[in-house]
Each structure stands twice: as structure tokens, then as C-alpha cells.
Computed example of a mutant assay.
Amino acid sequence: MIKLDKNIKDKNSRTKSLSLIDTRADKDLGTLVYKGEQVQMKFSNEDLKNHVETWFAGDNKVKGNNDITMLLEEVKISSFQNTGLAKVKIKISSFINRSGKYFFINRYDNTLSFNSKLTPNIPREISSSISDILSSFINESYSHTVLSTPVLEAELKDYETILEKNMKFITSPELVNGVYKDFKSFSEQKPQKEYYIGKNKKGKVIGVKDQNDLLVLTEEMYGYVEDGKAYRSTPVGFLEINKDDKGYYIVSSRLELYPKNSNTGAMIGAMTGGIVGGLIGAAIDSGSKTDRNANTTLSHVYIDSLTGAYVFEK
């Protein structure tokens, strides 16, 4: 049973209301196997719209002026009996509603993996994780940067397509060379003029330098563009950003991007590492670091086109 009862108090009292639109095509969360029996996963109150509004009202006695609407797009749990693994796919977005016009705040779009051999009570662990994600997402949405492109309520189902039309890194015929401190500057194609890419005599990138020719912490940077190609700052150095029919991606893994805690780190990083922040969850020793664990299975890790956060599919 998934309980939504964690603290979602808006500490700055900016929010007047919190509502939810459930657009899930499949309302069935899925089943898990626990102690040889099938466990049907459910929310403790399946009237999610009313439950979220009541939850918010209970934690927020002092209210502000912002009306926040969440779009619950997917919550799906898959269990694989032959491997003992379970996956949870969650996709949820938030908007500020201003007189019927919706302005995008944030999005969480990720898949979490659980191993029943390492998790004694996997239904309880997954329930707790879903509750953590939703409450953290709500708290993050209270003070998150808001995009300026309005979306009408009737067009909410197409919000991604509408917003991407105003993302310069998507619409520009060629990316602007330079260093980008965060995803916001990258999405607007406005590199930081006071930084540049430092190279050694062989032309290999050694890191980011400031106007005093001093190396700066690569973890403070989102990435850079050179000769029309974009590179993302990661714990294993700068990785090229590629594109296929599903979107933008780097070739990496949870373990590389969040070496301390590949599941929880990815959960938190995907929520807070986007439009404002650079890299969350791990420090980078050097921009030129390329020593990668040969035993790590690499795959496409997509980059959310609206937030810059990592989207794990495995």
C-alpha cells in the first residue's frame, strides 16, 4: 500500500493550492511477488486528485498565491520472477496555473530498479520509494524555476512538444561553442563568456578554465560545445551528447553517474540536477578523467529535454 503522508509543507508559504490531473493510460500499478505470493500494488487512497488536495491542505495552513497543478503521467511497477528484479517507472510533471495558462515547473521521468535478493520486503521498499519521490517532487516544485512559455489546459497532453519549440538547443541549426554552467544556459544557448575549455599540447581537454587561466571544478559546469558537438560533464569526464529518435543521450550507466548510490542517487539527481543545478550526486576529479570501469554495462542514458536531468530506462 502506497501512502502519501510525508511532509509537503511549503516552507515559504508561496503556494495557495495543489491539484492533480491523472492522465495515466493504465491506472493499474502492477503486481510484485513477495514470499511466493502475488501482491497487488495500490495507493492507500485511489482517489488521487482528492487525496493530493487533502494532503496539501493538511500540511499547509498558511497559503500563498501560486496554484500548482501536477500531471501524473505514469506509475508502473514491473516484476521479473526469473531474475528477482523489479522496476518502477514514474513520470510526473508540475505547472503553475495562472488564469488558465499553465507554465512548466519541473518533471520527474525515471525508472528505478530493485533487487529482491537485496531487499527483504520489496513491496514496502517500492511503496516507500514512490512516496519519497512524489513528496520530494512536490517540495521541489514549490520554489523551482518556471519556464515562460504558456500551455493551455486543453493542450497539456502535448506540453512537451509545445515547450520544445522554444528550446534553442533543439531548434537552433547549430549549437553555440562555449562552456555552459547549467542546463538553463545550455537550453537558451548562452555560454559563460568568462570560461573556456583548457587543452594540453596534444589537444586533449584537461578541464574548464576561468578568465585567470585557472582550472575550475568541472562539477560546477553542465558541459560545453565545441565544433557544434555538445559534451556533458560527468564523474568520468566529458561525454558526448548524441541524439536518436527518442531524444538526447550520453552513453553511461547509473553506477558511473552516481557511484555512491546508483539507485537513490539517480532518484534524487533526476529531480534536482536539471534546469538550475549542474551535477548532483558525485564529485569530478578532473574534466579529462577517462578511466572507466571495464565491467560496467553501458547504455543510453537520456537527457530530459525540458529539465536536463538524466532519464534512466534500466
Rank of each mutant, 00 (worst) to 15 (best):
72 L>Y: 13
72 L>R: 09
73 E>F: 11
73 E>R: 14
75 V>P: 00
76 K>V: 00
76 K>H: 15
78 S>G: 11
78 S>T: 14
80 F>M: 09
80 F>G: 03
82 N>E: 14
82 N>H: 13
82 N>F: 07
83 T>V: 11
84 G>I: 12
85 L>P: 02
86 A>Q: 15
86 A>N: 15
86 A>P: 11
86 A>I: 04
86 A>V: 04
87 K>L: 08
88 V>C: 07
88 V>S: 06
88 V>R: 04
88 V>H: 05
89 K>I: 06
90 I>M: 10
90 I>P: 02
90 I>A: 02
90 I>S: 00
91 K>P: 00
91 K>A: 01
91 K>N: 06
92 I>R: 06
92 I>W: 08
92 I>E: 09
93 S>K: 08
93 S>T: 12
94 S>P: 02
94 S>Y: 08
94 S>V: 02
95 F>K: 04
96 I>E: 12
96 I>H: 01
96 I>W: 02
97 N>V: 00
100 G>H: 01
100 G>S: 02
102 Y>Q: 03
102 Y>K: 07
102 Y>S: 03
102 Y>C: 04
104 F>P: 01
105 I>E: 03
106 N>W: 07
108 Y>P: 01
108 Y>V: 03
109 D>G: 00
110 N>E: 06
110 N>R: 08
110 N>I: 02
110 N>H: 05
111 T>M: 14
111 T>L: 12
112 L>V: 00
112 L>K: 13
113 S>H: 14
114 F>Y: 15
114 F>M: 10
115 N>A: 09
115 N>Y: 15
115 N>R: 15
115 N>M: 15
115 N>K: 15
115 N>G: 09
117 K>A: 12
117 K>Q: 13
117 K>F: 14
117 K>T: 12
118 L>S: 15
118 L>V: 15
118 L>K: 15
119 T>H: 11
119 T>Q: 14
120 P>S: 10
120 P>I: 07
120 P>M: 10
120 P>V: 07
120 P>L: 13
121 N>A: 03
121 N>K: 11
121 N>D: 13
122 I>W: 09
123 P>C: 04
124 R>T: 03
124 R>K: 04
124 R>D: 04
125 E>D: 10
126 I>M: 05
126 I>V: 09
127 S>C: 07
127 S>E: 15
129 S>T: 15
129 S>M: 09
130 I>D: 02
130 I>A: 00
132 D>Q: 06
132 D>E: 11
132 D>I: 01
133 I>E: 00
133 I>D: 03
133 I>A: 01
134 L>D: 04
135 S>E: 10
136 S>H: 12
136 S>E: 09
137 F>P: 01
137 F>R: 05
137 F>Y: 14
139 N>C: 09
139 N>K: 08
140 E>R: 01
141 S>Q: 02
141 S>Y: 07
141 S>C: 03
141 S>M: 05
142 Y>F: 11
142 Y>L: 01
143 S>G: 06
143 S>V: 04
143 S>T: 09
143 S>M: 01
144 H>I: 07
144 H>V: 06
144 H>T: 12
144 H>D: 08
144 H>Y: 11
145 T>G: 03
145 T>H: 05
145 T>Y: 06
145 T>C: 01
147 L>R: 03
147 L>T: 11
147 L>P: 00
